[in-house]
Design a protein around this nucleic acid. Structure first.
Lengths: 224, 224
DNA sequence: GGTTCCGTTAGGGTG
DNA sequence: CACCCTAGCGGAACC
């Protein structure tokens, strides 16, 4: 990895077209060819280019008569040109230990697994049937059966917004199944839309990963 | 801004819960308090925290008996702890010139403007009426009139996915208006959903910003 | 403050 | 390789 402190401008063409006027910035070039131009605020880089599809896995330097340089990063479909007005300095960190990667906890996928394994504990009248069940309008996360052996669709979200309610509504259309949303956070907009569309929902506290608890719910049809 | 080269591990709690095992990494702390932990691949940081809602606009150092340190970043709702095993060095770039910001070209907003100004050139039977027209299910990007003076809704996207088709479908429900999607890229899933829902769409080439051309389209009702 | 929506979304998984 | 969806999405605009 290489970290530069520069006064520069930049032009990008590819997925979009952008121009960045002259200012002081920090540029990072990674081992895989990724380039990022950072200002002093925010998480996202002002300009960047993914390294995976890079042509030369590095930059091409063009020197100009006035002493400035243009650093060119090129791939098949993208190009980023950094015009360097002044190079204040740089740093060359060597990251030797192999990156083990980020371990996430409490993802939607893990919540799906937990619910599949513990469905009857949370909802005594329901029995888990399968994951990723194909409805006429796309795959719903969980399929369960109620005590009358009827299909019950369960759509799982970490955060449920109104879009999730619309999605559930589509699953339930043209079908005799019932169903509901399960989420760790059912946003107010989702609750409002659910009321309008009569879509049931359940909100869980899952801070204890071994024992989810229902903290709030609204049902518009009997579950049993 | 400060750039550190560290051997470290990290724990984050807040919007999610994550753990990052020990390895060599580069940490950036910005003027606004933003923190990022970068490995040697990819654009996105492994771990990060937005600076805007930070408590002390900076880190809190805890020193341990074995000589290592824990750097703590805290806000009301989030916390990031970096356990520093070794500090290889750092860099302190000073970004004096005020950041003018990125200038984008060919955004969805610009495409909306272009279509508003050139609607009849692309669609001779249509007349532009207004932008951001309020339908019963939310605001549609453009409102036009056909030769019979009937409402025609136009939803503009840079990239249209199936979600955009569903959105359009909701606009057209409970209403006598017709309408269609316009996008620079109509994804296959959008085309499939549009066929099922009978939602018309138009795909444009807009590489020449002064002259958009229709490259593909599918209409499920007469436009005139 | 919450919500909505765009973005060069990035990145992972799957076919 | 293309397409799909999730994400601690980030960030901006609007209310």
């Amino acid at each position: 990895m290489k970290v530069y402190w520069l006064k520069c401008s930049a032009v990008y063409h590819g997925r979009g077209d952008t121009f960045l006027p002259v200012a002081d910035r920090v540029i990072i070039v990674k081992q895989d060819g990724s380039v990022m131009i950072h200002s002093d605020t925010g998480i996202k880089p002002l300009n960047y280019m993914t390294g995976t599809s890079m042509k030369n896995n590095g930059m091409l330097k063009e020197e100009h008569e006035d002493g400035t340089e243009t650093w060119v990063f090129d791939s098949n479909k993208e190009s980023l040109k950094i015009h360097v007005q002044h190079n204040y300095g740089s740093m060359s960190p060597i990251l030797e230990l192999e990156e083990p990667g980020l371990q996430r906890d409490g993802t939607e996928n893990q919540l799906q697994e937990y619910l599949a394994d513990n469905l009857s504990a949370l909802f005594p009248h329901l029995t888990f049937a399968q994951r990723e069940y194909q409805t006429g309008a796309g795959p719903v996360d969980l399929l369960a059966e109620n005590s009358s052996r009827n299909h019950v669709y369960i759509e799982v979200k970490r955060v449920a917004t109104s879009a999730a309610v619309h999605q559930m509504k589509r699953y339930l259309e043209d079908n005799e199944a019932t169903g509901f949303l399960v989420a760790l956070d059912v946003r107010p907009s989702a609750r409002a839309t659910a009321l309008k569309k009569k879509i049931s929902w359940v909100q869980l506290d899952w801070s204890d990963r071994n024992n989810a608890r229902i903290t709030d719910q609204q049902h518009y049809e009997r579950l049993g």
